[in-house]
C-alpha cells in the first residue's frame, strides 16, 4: 500500500493545475481580505476565518477529491491498478490516506496564510485567536475527510467521475443533509446529531468546552469506517468500467 501511496503522491504533485488552483484561491482570499480591510474590527480575523472555512470542504476538498479520486476514473487508472494485481481494499484505503495527507497539509497551511494576510493588513492574531481558528478549521477538515470517504462509494460503485464530484459538492454544501432533515423531520427529529455535521459539532463543542469528546470521536471513526467498508464492498461487486 505504501508503494501505491508513494506513486499517487508523485502523480498528484505532478498535476500542475493543483498549484494554479490553490494559488488562485490564495490570491482570491487575499483580495477579499484587502477589500474588507477598511472595516476590520478586533474579531474580524477570527470571524472571517470561520466564514472562509465554510468554503474549504467544497473548494479545497473538492479539488483534492477530483485529483485523488476522480482523475483515476477519467484516465481509467483504476483499471491499471487492479490489472497490476493491487487489491481493491488497498486502493480504497490508500486513496483515503492520501486524501487525509494532502488535506492535512492544505488545511494546516490555510490558517497560517490567513493570519499572515491579516497581519500584513494590520490585524495580528493572538494565540487564543489562533487556537479558535484551528479548532474551527479542524471541524471542517473532519467534514471534508468524511464526505470524501462517503463520495468514494460513488466513485467505486458507479465509476462515473461527474456523478461522484456532484455528490461530493452536494454533501459539502449541506444539500443532502438538508433534504434528509426535511424528509425525516417527523420520524427522526434528532437526525441532525447523527449526521456528520452534527457529530463534528459535538466534537468541536467538546474541544472548546473541555467536555467529553470520546463519543463523537467514536461516532466519527465508525462513520468513516462504514464508508470505507461500503466502498470496498461495492468496488468488489462492480466490474471495471472501460
Amino acid at each position: 500500500m505504501l508503494k501505491l501511496i508513494h506513486g499517487e503522491f508523485f502523480r498528484v504533485l505532478h498535476k500542475k493545475n493543483i498549484y494554479i488552483y490553490f494559488i488562485s484561491l490564495a490570491v482570491a482570499s487575499f483580495l477579499l481580505a484587502l477589500s474588507r480591510s477598511g472595516r476590520f474590527n478586533t474579531y474580524s480575523i477570527v470571524k472571517d476565518a470561520i466564514n472562509l472555512f465554510y468554503f474549504m470542504p467544497p473548494l479545497a476538498g473538492g479539488f483534492l477529491f477530483s485529483a485523488i479520486y476522480t482523475d483515476d476514473l477519467n484516465s481509467k487508472n483504476l483499471i491499471t491498478l487492479v490489472g497490476f494485481g493491487i487489491s481493491k481494499t488497498k486502493i480504497v484505503v490508500a486513496k483515503l490516506l492520501l486524501f487525509v495527507l494532502f488535506g492535512s497539509f492544505i488545511f494546516a497551511l490555510v490558517p497560517l496564510y490567513h493570519c499572515a494576510v491579516y497581519a500584513i493588513l494590520g490585524q495580528v492574531a493572538t494565540a487564543d485567536m489562533m487556537a479558535t481558528i484551528y479548532a474551527a478549521l479542524f471541524k471542517f477538515f473532519l467534514i471534508t475527510i468524511a464526505f470524501a470517504s462517503l463520495s468514494g462509494i460513488a466513485v467505486y460503485s458507479l465509476q462515473r467521475a461527474t456523478f461522484a464530484i456532484v455528490l461530493y459538492i452536494l454533501l459539502t454544501f449541506n444539500v443532502i443533509s438538508g433534504l434528509l432533515k426535511v424528509a425525516f423531520n417527523t420520524v427522526a427529529p434528532n437526525l441532525a446529531s447523527c449526521l456528520i455535521s452534527g457529530i463534528t459539532d459535538k466534537l468541536l463543542a467538546g474541544i472548546k468546552g473541555g467536555g467529553a469528546i470520546a463519543l463523537p470521536i467514536f461516532e466519527y471513526v465508525i462513520y468513516v469506517a462504514i464508508t470505507v467498508v461500503l466502498s470496498v464492498v461495492v468496488f468488489h461487486k462492480k466490474e471495471m468500467e472501460f
Binding site: L4, H6, G7, E8, R11, S75, K76, L81
Partner: peptide, 20 residues
C-alpha cells in the same frame, strides 16, 4: 486500451507505474 493521466508526460507516466 492504453490510458495514463492526461497531465503526465511519458517519463512521469512510467515513473508513476514504477512506483506503484
Amino acid at each position: 486500451n492504453p490510458s495514463f493521466f492526461p497531465y503526465l508526460n511519458p517519463r512521469e507516466s512510467l515513473k508513476y507505474l514504477c512506483q506503484i
